[in-house]
Design a binder for these strands. Structure first.
Length: 613
RNA sequence: GGCCCCGUAGCUCAACUGGAUAGAGCAGCUGACUUCUAAUCAGCAGGUUUCAGGUUCGAGUCCUGACGGGGUCACCA
């Protein structure tokens, strides 16, 4: 019964075959648009040329044929090149019954495939920000969607916990930290460490500014300035200063070497500070109500890629230049030459990713992987996938880059140097605060315990934030207006929650009225009811699309449309006070199914439903 | 400059993948709570889908070329 449209399509194809002895495979069937009174529409135009008959004649012939064969087709009309088909109400009652009888409606059957999803993937030197939030929400949501679409899913991340940037915060803490800890300062661990990362930059800039006045610096400037102003020259020279003259730079590079040589003091410091950051990350993920099954750390995987480099060289998939660096030729994929290993034998970004991929295969034997990473890395992933393909990895045919656009502020790009980065924890706090204000004003939660109130406010605030981000197609760059993100009216998460809460409220009342049981006498659907059933029927299809296109926004927009249709229905139709008992029971049943699907769809987005609001 | 992505109402986004008169929300204006929760509903207004060509019965969607925005072209990640 979930396949009304495919049934109609098949019948239409049969009709074409029987009436015109022509086979038509790419028939288009779609829901009839609102301004016409029918249920499904078959587009006739493509047939006109082949059959050399008028659209009207073809439509009428096919319509009549179908009307005669299927009892639940009750009418048809050919308008211009469109054959509009009307179905009997009974089929929609059957559909609703069928949905109600389907346990876990929307859940597709097991595909027997395991997919690994990578998201979040932060650096352990500063707290998460708005960009990470988009990443995490997309990763979490697509994981849920894939599970519902029948895949087994493993949620992972790769944590960048090594390298020069990490050492900067370690140096700053050793020099200026006075043995303070997140606990002693009562600061969240990731923010605590991030502050030292910022402090390093500040101290380094001071050091650099002082150095610029020295004779050495002036000589360098005079010899190399090439007409640049002093300011501009030293801006460009910063990196070289760090590597060749800076005291702090020297300390930092020394620390990285010591780290790679397993110096116990450095390792201890590194472990301590890393654990602070990771604790902080955990808190943020908790606050967002998401989780990750398995962490991979670059500190653990950065060496493993090297065995793959050996393998690639042996199989002549990679080649070595005279200086010792290793490359792969991806010219036939239009991706040029890609470096796989540095001339000094140390690994680069892609080396790690090759290693991590194999490590994951060893751990999980997955059939494929999805990397949730910003679109500035499109090229990297093309190269990575092509390389894994060249290496003939068993999972190489099912690798996807869920490439999402940057998040801008109304004022423009987020820039850490200009302090315009929106901190994840601040943002979460803010949206919950906004929800709290709102529920307080409206007084709807007054009879609940403080804990329940807090819980509901968190659900509402997070719904606003998450929906605001997930409703946008992932590949599009989006503008994040903090003011709009806490909006709770119109096309928002709370609007959809509100539809759910209205249904719960009705159900509570219905229970008190002892309105239970089934009644099948209700037989005439109004447009609002029919519309809701049609939308419910769309749900599995929507999951399919979202899963195929890796697009949570499909679910977000679907949920909005369903909630909107319910709000309309709620306003236009008496549910409990209708004198016809069979109507009441039918509408309760319909409402219940709507609430189930809304709840499920929101689950797919990682958003929870409150019972009251 | 080469390659990749984006361009739809004042703003934020849709448009079932080529189908009928391009839809929602916000902001603005008007109306609906003694009635199942008004975080709601209805209405008004808002568009040469950046531009110019092309493909065809039919283009916001496909192709070409401009223009505008962003990304990327590291032995960074």
């Amino acid at each position: 019964m979930h396949h009304i449209s495919t049934k109609i399509k098949e019948l239409a194809q049969k009709a074409i075959l029987d009436c015109y002895q022509v086979k038509e495979n790419s028939l288009i069937i779609k829901p009839t648009s609102k301004e016409f009174d029918a249920d499904f529409t078959i587009v006739i135009f493509p047939l006109v040329k082949r059959l050399k008959k008028s659209p009207q004649e073809i439509g009428d012939t096919l319509g009549k044929y179908m009307l005669d064969r299927l009892e639940w087709i009750v009418d048809f009309k050919t308008i211009k090149g469109f054959l509009n088909i009307s179905l009997s109400d009974r089929i929609w009652f059957d559909v609703l019954d069928d949905i109600a009888d389907t346990p876990h409606f929307g859940q597709q059957k097991n595909k027997g495939e395991k997919l690994l999803v990578e998201y979040s993937s932060p650096n352990t030197n500063k707290p998460l920000h708005l960009g990470h939030i988009r990443n995490i929400l997309l990763g979490w949501s697509i994981s849920n969607i894939l599970e519902t679409a029948g895949y087994e899913v493993v949620r992972t991340q790769i944590i960048n916990d090594r390298g020069i940037a990490i050492c900067k915060s370690m140096i700053a803490w050793s020099l200026y930290g006075e043995n303070k800890t997140p606990k002693s300062q009562n600061i969240k661990g990731d923010l605590f460490v991030g502050n030292y990362y910022v402090l390093f930059d500040k101290k380094f800039n001071e050091e650099y500014a002082a150095w610029q006045k020295t004779n050495t610096a002036q000589i360098i400037f005079n010899n190399n300035s090439k007409k640049l102003t002093e300011e501009l020259f030293f801006k460009k020279y910063k990196n070289e200063y760090f590597n060749n003259y800076s005291q702090l730079g020297k300390l930092t590079r020394k620390m990285l070497q010591d780290w790679e040589n397993n110096d116990p003091d450095v390792l201890n410091l590194w472990k301590k500070m890393r654990s602070w950051v990771l604790e902080g990350f955990d808190e943020t993920l908790d606050a967002l109500n998401v989780s990750i099954d398995k962490d991979y750390f670059e500190s653990e995987t950065y060496l493993t890629g090297k065995s793959i480099v050996e393998e690639g060289l042996q199989k002549n998939i990679f080649y070595k230049k005279d200086d010792g660096s290793v490359w792969i030729d991806l010219e036939q994929n239009n991706l040029g030459q890609k470096i796989i290993l540095r001339s000094d034998g140390t690994s680069v970004y892609i080396t790690q990713d090759l290693g991590t991929a194999d490590l994951r295969y060893k751990d999980y034997k997955m059939d494929g992987m999805i990397y949730v990473v910003g679109n500035e890395q499109d090229y990297h992933f093309q190269a990575l996938f092509a390389t894994l393909k060249a290496l003939n990895r068993p999972y190489a045919d099912k690798l996807f880059h869920l490439s999402y656009g940057m998040v801008d502020l109304p004022s423009g790009k987020m820039k850490s140097r200009e302090g315009t980065v929106v901190d994840a924890d601040d943002l979460i706090k803010e949206v919950i605060e906004e929800a709290t204000q709102s529920t307080k004003e409206r007084g709807v939660l007054d009879d609940l315990s403080p804990k329940e109130i807090q819980d509901i406010n968190a659900k509402i605030g997070l719904a606003a934030l998450k929906f605001f981000i997930l409703k946008v197609q992932s590949k599009k760059r989006m503008v994040f207006d903090p003011k709009e993100s806490v909006d709770m009216q119109g096309q928002t998460g709370p609007y959809i929650q509100n539809a759910f809460v209205r249904i719960r409220s009705i159900q509570r009342k219905a229970n008190k009225m002892n309105l239970n049981g089934a009644d099948s006498k209700y037989s005439i659907l109004n447009v609002y009811e029919k519309n809701l059933i049609k939308l419910l029927l769309d749900y599995p299809h929507t999951i399919q699309i979202a899963s195929n296109t890796l697009e949570p926004s499909e679910i977000a927009n679907y949920a909005y449309n369903l909630a909107k249709a319910y709000h309309r229905f709620y306003h236009e139709v008496k549910i409990l006070s209708d004198p016809d008992r069979s109507a009441v029971l039918f509408r309760l049943k319909l409402s219940h199914q709507v609430s189930d699907v809304l709840k499920n769809a929101f689950y797919l987005l990682g958003i929870q439903m409150p019972q009251k609001m």
